[in-house]
């Protein structure tokens, strides 16, 4: 494919070339620059991803990767898009791992721990081996949040599981064969939607919008010409700017369109 501005190698390797090191992708050796992430190194070697590549920014959970280093018995883990290659590493991606997810009717589900226990009874097969925590590429304390769920402490479980990217590596190691990340998702939704106090100011605003409170002001703006809009936009009165270090209670001097 020809394009006027070709997409190509300058996107992978920065101008300064670095030292090459051997890595083993699913057992096969490739020599790659030692400054690259596993993902870019595989592309450098000629792989083109369909699976195992998503956001390329460490948040989507598509590129969970396990590897071993020479002279080290441990299984190591990382996201391919975030982990820099190491000399002699043996790696494979685990872009998908089968996991049980229970369908639940969110509206009808009560905010009690038993609802989660019923949806995921395997929670109680946890033997606290901590393999889940050890393999988590995001350093989420998986076993601890599972324990919090079992105690019914959804606030704690939400806090501990919040950085989960749902890559599924925890489920791949679980002796109880549960999908911790699906359970945590259910818990976070119940906590966020049914336990955490609601924003009453938001409910008031929704009602005010529905009652048409802001219609006239918006009509004026929609009809205004560009010169008028510019004048309003730059006006320190019509569009007063809330100071950056102000408290939540700050109020503007001109409240004509509130």
């Amino acid at each position: 494919m020809s394009t006027t501005a070709p997409i190509g190698e300058d996107k992978i390797v920065a101008k300064v070339t670095s030292k090459h090191v051997p890595i083993y992708v699913m057992g096969k050796r490739y020599d790659v620059p030692d400054s690259l992430t596993i993902m870019k190194a595989m592309e450098y070697a000629g792989y083109k991803f369909i699976r195992g590549c998503g956001c390329r920014g460490g948040i989507c959970g598509a590129c969970g990767t396990v590897y071993k280093k020479p002279d080290d018995y441990k299984i190591h883990v990382g996201l391919a898009c975030q982990t820099v290659v190491q000399e002699g590493m043996h790696l494979t991606q685990i872009p998908f791992y089968p996991a049980t997810r229970t369908v639940f009717d969110y509206e009808q589900t009560p905010a009690v721990a038993e609802a989660v226990f019923k949806a995921y009874p395997e929670l109680f097969r946890c033997v606290a081996c901590n393999a889940c925590t050890k393999i988590c590429p995001m350093d989420v304390p998986v076993m601890d949040y599972v324990a919090a769920i079992k105690r019914g402490d959804f606030e704690k479980a939400t806090e501990l599981s919040f950085d989960c990217i749902q890559c599924g590596l925890c489920a791949s190691r679980c002796m109880a064969e549960m999908a911790q990340y699906h359970i945590a998702q259910m818990v976070r939704r119940i906590y966020g939607g049914k336990i955490k106090p609601k924003a009453t100011h938001l409910a008031v605003m929704v009602d005010n919008v529905k009652a048409g409170k802001f219609k006239d002001g918006l009509e004026q703006l929609k009809k205004a010409d560009v010169a008028t809009l510019k004048q309003l936009y730059m006006s320190k009165d019509a569009r007063e700017i809330e100071p950056n270090m102000s408290e939540d209670e700050w109020v503007p001097t001109n409240n004509a369109y509130l």
């Binding site: 918006l218 703006l221 936009y233 939540d248």
Partner: peptide, 25 residues
């Protein structure tokens, strides 16, 4: 979301200013 200091009116002005006043009203 905070009626004591904000409304869709000010949000509208900000969006238009950011977009160089040529957004579709």
């Amino acid at each position: 979301s905070k009626g004591h200091k904000d409304s869709p009116y000010y949000h509208y002005l900000d969006v238009m200013g950011g977009g160089h006043f040529v957004n579709v009203p």
